[in-house]
Amino acid sequence: MKFDKPVTGGPCWAELGTTDLEATASTPASSAGGRRRTRARRWAVARRPASGTRRSPRSCRWARRSSPSPGYVTFAVADLDAALAKLRAAGGSVVREPGDVPGMGRFASAADPDGAPFHLWQDRGFAGAGLLNAPGTLGWVELAMRDTERARTFSTAVFGWSVTSSPQYTHFGVEGAEFGGMLAMNDMYPPEVPPHWLPYFAVEDVDASADAAAGAGAAIAMEPTTVPNGPRIAVLRDPQGAVFGVHREREKG
């Protein structure tokens, strides 16, 4: 991610879905300290809000399958109503109509034409994460999608993202500042796994973080690996099924 705080059009917050907030608090991704709420928990790094966990009902469609619990990625918008109008025109759907969070902002849940869920946030006092792309904070977001061409069209129409594509991967950016990407879902993904956003958290050492997560009861969904000309990454599944990635940017020079 090429910015260290939320910008309009980019990701401003991420939450992991879980059926057990207390158990999730013991995993390395949640070890920075938190503020407890009834259905959610907010985590801080250097006393700045960084990310959260949210209770997912066992009856939701993700929890009924042997697929990951959802990662809730939130994108910042300047005008929530205008963004939702663009979203509907581009074939997306509104899952939860806009609502006000007093003193903080306006919020809505949405999905793209293929059903990948995400949130939208309009800042009215709370911009989102106080720090991005630093150890322990959100550092990248990745969309797993089967119809990648439709996803590119939707993203540019709704958010105006810059798009850089190669046969292997698509990078998304805000005015060229990259914050995430898109991976085509191939035969490695079971048919029942729906399109989804996966948050990646920046860490000092991917291998050590994966080992620590495994020691806390998490499963390693993808072993640490170095992307050619890219970061070192791993994908983890916590004991409650929430899936997230960890990464360290490639050293420059």
Rank of each mutant, 00 (worst) to 15 (best):
R37C: 10
R48D: 15
A82H: 05
G128M: 11
E22P: 05
F201G: 12
R37W: 14
R124N: 07
V243A: 06
E204A: 15
G176P: 08
A157F: 01
F244L: 15
T170D: 05
D100W: 01
T18N: 11
R41W: 13
E251I: 10
G230C: 08
P199M: 12
R39H: 07
G230A: 01
F126T: 08
A50R: 02
D79E: 11
T53M: 06
Q168P: 02
G9D: 01
V73S: 10
G241N: 07
A202C: 11
D100R: 14
G173V: 09
V174T: 12
E192Q: 13
A219W: 02
L16G: 15
P239E: 10
A44D: 15
A78N: 10
E15L: 07
P70F: 05
G136I: 05
V206Y: 03
F118S: 10
A202M: 10
R146G: 01
S209G: 00
V246W: 08
T164V: 15
P117D: 12
A89C: 01
S165W: 05
W62R: 12
S67R: 09
R64Y: 03
H119Y: 08
A208M: 01
A90S: 07
G17D: 07
R65V: 03
E97K: 14
A44P: 06
G128L: 12
L236A: 09
R65T: 12
S166G: 09
L21A: 05
F3V: 15
S162H: 00
G99H: 03
G9C: 03
A214I: 09
S93F: 03
N133L: 03
H171F: 09
A50G: 03
E142P: 04
T148H: 00
E175A: 12
G128R: 08
F3H: 13
